[in-house]
């Protein structure tokens, strides 16, 4: 199953061949083929337990599939790990925020680890972009779950990575925040990036035909 084959002149950013995934002896998906190009926004859909998170984790290289390969720029991701991870930003269910560090410290560490440029001034700016003005120096353990999520989403504003893989980015985010994020996605794909995400909400700022969909369902054969 391919998402977009129209622009076959430029090689796809990510391509997946014959992907099979088994979790707890259950077949989640079988022989999946996907191509994702620069400028794509891809929404992975499916009922609970259909393997959405597993697919995103396999795409990001965190999990190994039962069978099949994931390519980045036509190279196996296991063989071009450093290049791939330099161009990848993955946000999972867990925000990856340490309670013992302040919001600013958390963001600064995550950005530096990822190799994104940052200094005290633009950290403050970035945090204000996700509505955390005034919370820069409070320890993350004093903040709410939604604020944790926003600390981790703040990285999107400074990210130099082309590929964004986001697992339920809108949970615990208010309507206004969702809108801001969608605008951010739009800017990102315009710059030649791609976004792969799971969400139960519809992406309102996008035209329906603009969003590529991958629908997962229970498979038995």
């Amino acid at each position: 199953m391919s998402v977009n084959q129209a622009t076959s002149l430029t090689p796809p950013l990510i391509s997946v061949t014959n992907l099979t995934c088994i979790r707890e002896e259950r077949l989640l998906f079988d022989q999946l083929n996907i191509e994702i190009n620069a400028g794509d926004i891809v929404q992975v859909e499916g009922p609970n337990g259909s393997g959405k998170t597993s697919l995103l984790r396999i795409l990001s290289g965190l999990s190994q599939p039962f069978e099949g390969e994931v390519f980045f720029n036509q190279q196996l991701i296991s063989q071009s790990r450093e290049e791939f991870h330099q161009d990848l930003l993955y946000l999972g269910h867990l925000p990856g925020v340490k309670g013992e560090m302040s919001a600013a410290e958390n963001l600064s560490f995550n950005l530096t680890l990822q190799g994104a440029p940052n200094n005290a001034v633009n950290i403050e700016k970035t945090l204000s972009a996700v509505n955390l003005t005034g919370f820069e120096d409070s320890l993350a353990s004093h903040l709410s779950a939604g604020q944790h999520r926003r600390i981790s989403l703040a990285r999107l504003y400074k990210s130099t990575a082309k590929i964004w893989i986001l697992d339920e980015p809108f949970t615990a985010i208010d309507k206004q925040g969702v809108r801001a994020l969608e605008l951010l996605f739009k800017a990102h794909i315009k710059q030649g990036g791609c976004v792969i995400l799971t969400t139960h909400q519809d992406l309102l700022t996008f035209e329906p035909e603009q969003v590529k969909k991958i629908t997962l369902d229970y498979v038995f054969d």
């Binding site: 290049e83 990856g96 340490k98 309670g99 995550n110 190799g115």
Partner: peptide
């Protein structure tokens, strides 16, 4: 353990560094 529980371990494994 704590890094695993709050997701920072994931982020470290996904960083471009060995």
């Amino acid at each position: 353990k704590s890094d695993h529980d709050d997701g920072s371990l994931e982020q470290m494994l996904l960083s471009p560094h060995p």
